[in-house]
Design a protein around this nucleic acid. Structure first.
Length: 326
RNA sequence: GGUGCGGUGGUGAAGUGGUAACACAGCGGUCUGCAAAACCGCAAUACGCGGGUUCGAUUCCCGCCCGCACCU
């Protein structure tokens, strides 16, 4: 019996998330769910938010969307490193509310675990914007000095921070420094979580390491043969600096290096191998992030995802079944 | 055939008469405004083979094997 859901047939405070490592097939599965369960997509990908990063970021194409609306794609300018989790949280929340209001099922799909958590757990992100001047100043200090400084300003935070990670050290100091002026906002130490007003079904795509590696390599090959290099070249011509491309990581970082060095075409093989392992590293980092989240239910195929979704939506939701016999 | 140089963990590459750096790859992990980023930890059945010198050899000597270069 075919089960379908009529538009507006259930009221949702429910949202579905599809997570998993890169190249695991999240988008395809999520779109399929969206079509079956009257959903709309919210991307949770820190690179797909940028305009012009398409092939390299694996952004879904118009065609692959199959008519399902997608949010949080192409919302930022790649030239500037302005986009952050905080920004994402804000925009995604708006999109989420909008979708829910229209009685659709929001499906959050992406591989940026931090973004998903920020949205889902309503992380309280300190209301302190990055301060470039202060950062520049702090950047002159070495790790040890930064650590000691933080320890003086906010011993609690110093207690649980990674003392060698200067990027985070700097941000922590930035927060306490700015926070000092606003006593009412003292969330020093380890800030927290507000909790979500919605119910979440967390679906994770499970793949064996071997399978995943194969998919990564196949996809990479495809990208290289279908305009990846040209995309990066174009981005640079349009004003995205080499430095910025480097920050963007993976494909953008290594293809940019490749282009800059003007290497022989033979070096292409080297580029491909290099990218393959770097992307693999990334996938592993994603896995260690998702592994920690015990609320994720791991599925191996669409059927399992579909089943869980059905159960999830049915719980206290109004569902209309349309069987053959109806 | 001769001469020279070299053979160190999966790969690259240091080094020492008292059993061996480092980098990469591998594996594990952190994560509250750059998160495809940044950062941390672990393991390694590693000194070509056989002799000799020595208290002790990966390090010195001899022979052999293999690679590279040059010579005939």
């Amino acid at each position: 019996m075919q089960v379908q859901f009529l538009p507006g047939a259930f009221v949702g405070t429910k949202v579905i998330a599809v997570v998993g490592p890169t190249a695991s097939g999240k988008s395809a599965l999520a779109v399929r769910l969206a079509r079956q369960f009257n959903g709309e997509m919210i991307s949770a990908d820190s690179r797909q938010v940028y305009r012009g990063l398409n092939i390299g970021s694996g952004k879904i194409t118009k065609r692959e969307m199959k008519g399902v609306p997608h949010y949080l794609l192409d919302v930022a300018n790649p030239k500037r490193p302005s986009f952050t989790v905080a920004q994402y949280q804000k925009l995604a929340k708006l999109a989420l509310e909008n979708i829910i209001q229209r009685k659709k099922t929001p499906i959050v799909c992406g591989g940026t675990g931090f973004y998903i958590n920020a949205l889902r757990d309503n992380l309280i992100l300190p209301p302190i914007a990055p301060n470039p001047k202060l950062r520049q100043q702090l950047d002159r200090l070495d790790d040890r000095q930064l650590y000691l400084k933080l320890k003086r300003l906010d011993p609690k935070r110093a207690g649980n921070i990674d003392p060698y990670n200067r990027r985070r050290l700097i941000r922590a100091i930035e927060i306490t420094t700015m926070l000092g002026r606003v006593p009412s906002l003292v969330i020093k130490g380890n800030p927290s979580v507000k909790g979500s007003p919605w119910h979440w079904l967390m679906l994770g795509i499970k793949l064996s390491p071997e399978e995943l590696r194969k998919k990564i390599d196949a996809r990479l090959k495809f990208r290289i043969n279908h305009g990846l290099i040209a995309e990066v070249r174009r981005l640079h011509r349009n004003g995205v600096s080499w430095k910025r491309l480097d920050e963007l990581g993976l494909e953008y970082r290594y293809v940019a290096k490749f282009l800059r060095q003007q290497k022989h075409p033979l070096e292409m093989a080297f580029l491909e191998r290099q990218l393959s392992t770097v992307i693999w590293h990334y996938a592993k980092r994603q896995m260690t992030w998702f592994k920690r989240d015990k609320t994720i239910q791991w599925v191996e195929n669409y059927r399992e995802a579909e089943r869980l979704t059905m159960v999830f939506l049915r719980k206290s939701g109004k569902i209309i079944k349309i069987g053959k016999g109806l």
